[in-house]
Design a protein around this nucleic acid. Structure first.
Lengths: 240, 240
DNA sequence: TTCTTGCAATAAGTACGATCATTGTGGCAA
DNA sequence: TTGCCACAATGATCGTACTTATTGCAAGAA
């Protein structure tokens, strides 16, 4: 028996919602790899036209999540072929049941990317960028010392700090993980996982990293950024 | 006057070829950010139906390369919003006029990812994976010493070596860059940029990295992998 | 029995025309 | 000048029809 229609009322923004729902279900494993669907079935299930289903399927296919073959249908592909760095896919996986593992995987990715971005930033950042990174580090320190590590202000300064470093690295491939990182930071903040008084070592590393970037010390920048990402990684691994 | 049709003969595999051509033109800057197209115009230009154009547009939209708005048309978005880690987009950029910059950017990404993957591999790899990595390093050494650094055999062993390390790291987000890396390695090989006698230091680093992974020495693995990626980075920067 | 060949069924791929929905723009009135 | 409103442009969705590739199965040959 086919699934019941998921949208009793005529849905707005069909493409987006179908894509999002399908993507979520696949990313979360509800539709396991190997599962075979048909366009006709999806058409009925979502109560939308062929066009909408096809476009959603094409997008998912472009992300490597499904494979469409004549005479067979639409097959969910094994996770090893997914474009796991795709921002949208990362969001889907962060909102599914595998969120904890995703956060660890993403933090490992941060451990790879951020120190190198910091090194490049120390070499390439403009004066404006250096000043801004220094300013943000000072703000973080000030807020942290004042016991406001769990405030909205700290959160936005934290995100901005990491964003500016990634940007100052001057390599778009390194800045590409900005958004997922911001989402993880925000998620941890909203879950109450960021203490009012940040760990002294981590805060110190932030300030030192900024100082190193400002004065063009590539080794120092890399080392201190690695230092605080390792702190975060230890935390998220412990939380799992 | 609209462009002449690009396909006089009724094209096979319409979706793929339209997507590829459009993606290439955007990635290469032939269609610059800000350029506005219309579905009708594309339909006529490629001589295919709306269905095909729409699906290609959706996929490019999912990659952040274009934005489709009613009453306006389809606009090429600024590069800062592209999903530059998308394997297909990387391939497009590697085959366009910006190939040299892409190779440098990708190698900087390797400098971030591979050492961390090697560290994780030293901690997590299975016995089978360790053995395979050791075997491949031995093969590379043997071929390199024999002056076969420019052979097909060396090329495939080199790619396999890097792939196995990324896989053994056990983090899909780190393995995601396998394919682009392989393409760059292959491209440099085919361009005659890999010498028959590989640089002694680089070869040594490969062997030492493998040894470190085999014996579970995370620091050593990370250090030696970073060593040879830095060598490669210096080379590709010099080639630019 | 076993292998090849061809037919038929299936489901995706492509095409087309109609209609809906949104939104920028220009005109008109206050 | 300002603000409201109607119009038109264009993507979004729909439904249908036709095309093509793939696969399974059956019939026939070896």
């Amino acid at each position: 028996m086919p699934h019941a229609s998921r949208s009793s009322a005529p849905t707005r923004a069909s493409h987006g919602s179908v894509l999002d729902d399908l993507g979520l279900r696949i990313a979360d494993g509800v539709l396991a790899p190997g599962t075979v669907l048909t366009l006709a079935g999806l058409e009925e299930e979502y109560g939308v036209s062929r066009t909408v289903i096809r476009e959603a399927v094409r997008v998912l296919e472009a992300k490597g999540m499904i494979e469409s073959r004549r005479r067979i249908g639409v097959t969910i592909t094994p996770m090893s072929r997914w474009s796991v760095l795709d921002p949208v896919l990362i969001r889907w996986r962060l909102s599914g049941s595998t969120r904890p593992q995703q956060i660890v995987a993403l933090t490992e990715l941060r451990l790879a990317i951020e120190p190198v971005a910091a090194r490049l930033a120390a070499q390439r950042a403009s004066e404006l960028e250096r000043a801004e990174i220094g300013r943000l580090a000072g703000l973080l320190k000030q807020l942290g010392d004042a016991g406001k590590g769990d405030s909205e202000e700290y959160l936005s300064a934290d995100i901005a700090f990491h964003d500016r470093i990634l940007e100052a690295g001057g390599n778009l491939m390194l800045t590409a993980i900005k958004q997922p990182i911001a989402e993880v930071i925000t998620g941890r903040h909203n879950a109450g996982l960021t203490p009012a008084h940040p760990l002294h070592g981590a805060l110190h590393n932030h300030v030192e990293a900024a100082t190193a970037i400002v004065r063009g010390d590539a080794d120092g920048a890399e080392r201190h950024v690695r230092g605080y990402v390792e702190t975060i990684l230890a935390e998220v691994r412990a939380e799992q």
